[in-house]
Measured scan of single mutants.
Amino acid sequence: NKASVVANQLIPINTALTLIMMKAEVVTPMGIPAEEIPKLVGMQVNRAVPLGTTLMPDMVKNYE
């Protein structure tokens, strides 16, 4: 099973992601793959992301 990106803390709306906000975890359903973490740094979330939430592509602005 591949790990996904999971919020390590509450991430407020429009916050630019940093490494300490994210962790890799095997979850179902899968979200953004953990190997994308370096690419996510500096990208903004378009909603508040609660602690423990799996990051999905539609939660990150301009994620492709």
Rank of each mutant, 00 (worst) to 15 (best):
P29D: 07
I32Q: 01
V45A: 04
L55N: 00
K39N: 09
V5K: 00
V41N: 05
L17G: 00
P12H: 07
K23M: 13
V26L: 12
N8L: 13
D58M: 09
V45L: 08
A3L: 14
V6H: 04
P12S: 11
N62L: 11
G42L: 08
L55V: 12
P38W: 13
P12N: 12
N14A: 10
Q9E: 14
T15V: 08
A24Y: 07
D58H: 14
E35Q: 12
A3K: 06
I13H: 14
G52E: 13
E64T: 11
G52K: 04
N46Y: 10
V45D: 01
K2W: 05
T15W: 11
A3V: 06
A3W: 02
Q9T: 13
N46G: 12
I37G: 04
M22S: 01
L55K: 01
Q9F: 11
A7H: 01
K39Q: 15
E36M: 04
I32V: 15
E36A: 13
E35V: 14
P50D: 15
E25F: 05
L51Q: 11
M22L: 09
I11W: 01
K39R: 10
P29A: 04
P12E: 15
A24F: 04
K61S: 14
M43R: 14
K39H: 13
P38K: 12
T28V: 12
T15E: 12
I11A: 01
M30T: 12
I13L: 13
V41C: 02
D58R: 13
N1P: 08
I13N: 13
V41Q: 15
K23Y: 06
T15H: 10
L10I: 13
N1L: 14
V6C: 03
Q44T: 13
M30K: 11
M22R: 00
Y63A: 06
R47P: 02
V45N: 07
N46W: 11
M56R: 10
G31W: 02
G31A: 04
T54F: 02
T15G: 15
L17M: 09
Y63L: 11
P12D: 11
M22E: 00
I13W: 11
A16M: 12
T18E: 04
N46E: 06
V27M: 07
G42S: 10
P12A: 10
V5M: 03
I37L: 12
M59T: 05
M30P: 11
A24C: 03
P33R: 13
V49Q: 03
P33T: 12
N46C: 02
A7M: 15
Q9G: 05
L17W: 01
I32D: 01
M43S: 08
T15A: 06
V27P: 05
V6N: 03
M21K: 12
A48C: 03
A7T: 12
M56Y: 06
S4F: 04
L55E: 01
A48P: 12
Q9P: 00
G52C: 03
L17C: 02
V5Y: 01
A3F: 03
Q44N: 13
S4A: 06
I37M: 12
S4K: 02
K23S: 12
L19N: 07
T18N: 13
Q9W: 14
K23C: 02
T15I: 05
T53K: 15
V41L: 11
N1Y: 14
V41S: 10
P33V: 11
P33N: 09
V49S: 02
I20P: 12
E36F: 06
P57I: 04
I11F: 01
A16F: 10
L10V: 15
M30V: 12
V60L: 10
P50W: 10
A48L: 12
P12C: 03
V45H: 00
E64S: 06
L10M: 13
V27D: 03
V6Q: 05
G52M: 06
L40V: 11
A24S: 07
T28E: 06
V45Y: 00
T54E: 02
S4M: 04
I32S: 00
